[in-house]
Amino acid sequence: MTVSNTTTRTGAAGLSAAPARPTGRRWVARAAGLLGLLPFLAYTGLFLAAPVVMVVVGAFQDNDGAFTTDNVTTAVSDQYGRAFVTSIELSALTAVVGAVLGAVLAQAVLSRRPDGVLRKAVTSASGVLANFGGVQLAFAFIATLGSIGIVTKALAAVGLDIYQGGFTLFGFTGIAIVYIYFQVPLMLIVFTPALEGMREQWREAAENLGATRWQYWRHVAGPVLLPPFLASLLLLFANSLSAFATAEALTNGIIGLVPIQIGALVSGNVVADQQNLGKALGLGMVIVVGLVMAVYYRIQRRTARWLG
């Protein structure tokens, strides 16, 4: 029998004693293992933790660096308070509509052959469209659904003047439509893996046990897909909440959304030296997303106990 050096040195008594402290070589090995984490830690520290700390600190400072709660108080009152309400309403609406439509589209696409043209085309197009935002998207919609857009004119030519009917691309509804345009493909991209993880045998087993299609979705597929659906919904909400350029280009800041208010404060276009109020609004957005995440985790704990 071969006995290790350590055992030989410590003897029988050493075996029952507390584990030996890591030797210098082990510390080196452990430190080397942590080295691999350094790039990740550096990245998240620099681009996530540091900005959040700066936002939090700045939100409670006046222009001279003294502590104040004025920024936070102002951030939740009057036009800024309304901006939060509008942003949350817009984000919730576009997230829910985008998630539902995206999930349905993803399921429809997955029902096609994996190597089929349609499936490949929709998946590829979604990758592009989910990232197709900002000024160019706003222009695309102005050119189609603007007051003299192609679609608007075409509809007017057949007697359906949507602007006469109260619709405008440059209000809440218009922004919601434009946001949904990139939310749907984003949902398709993030939710497709969850749908692909559904086993055909679950459906067949349910059917074999007497389940109709509806009963299968109600008792098996729905509960299994609910946690990833909620996670995707959260992502869409955050995506919509933080979107800036599209709304700014489309409405020129007429609709008061929080990112637009922050943009105005940071650039000093309206009021000078109010960057810290902008940070307070940023802190408000962090809190909103944090609250949504807390609700999400609470729901997930109830709906996905089976995930262990």
Binding site: R199, Q201, W202, E204, A205, A206, E207, N208, L209, G210, A211, T212, H219, V220, P223, V224, A304, W306
Partner: peptide, 22 residues
């Protein structure tokens, strides 16, 4: 007759238990 009306009990090759149910 559709599968859900046949009263056949089936055990599949790979594990087909519903993951969300105890």
């Amino acid at each position: 007759v559709p599968a859900n009306k046949r009263d056949m009990g089936m055990v599949f090759q790979s594990y087909s238990l519903f993951p969300n149910l105890a």
